[in-house]
Amino acid sequence: MFLINCPFCGEREQSEFKAGGEAHIVRPKQPTELSDDEWAEYLFMRKNIKGIQFERWNHIHGCRKWFNIVRDTSNDEIKAVYKMGKKPPLV
């Protein structure tokens, strides 16, 4: 059970949060101009990294804000937390 440092509320139990998958997958601005392949890439294909992953979390039972986390998925160690729209930190 992680202890997550919500950038708006501070450290809270993992139970207060919901994970939202890989971060920095931007929704295409012009979906209709994409091929089926390109659209599938956005919709379904994931890096699913073992190691340092950038991912989205939501403080769903708290401030309800979305933010990003850098986590090593091989041992679940959280390396950094940063707000949406900010540049990912170098880890």
């Binding site: 939202g20 931007v26 949406m84």
Partner: peptide, 13 residues
């Protein structure tokens, strides 16, 4: 509610 907040905060801030 969760889905709308998600789009609002992350795709269309």
């Amino acid at each position: 509610m969760g889905k709308l907040e998600d789009y609002l905060q992350t795709e269309w801030p």
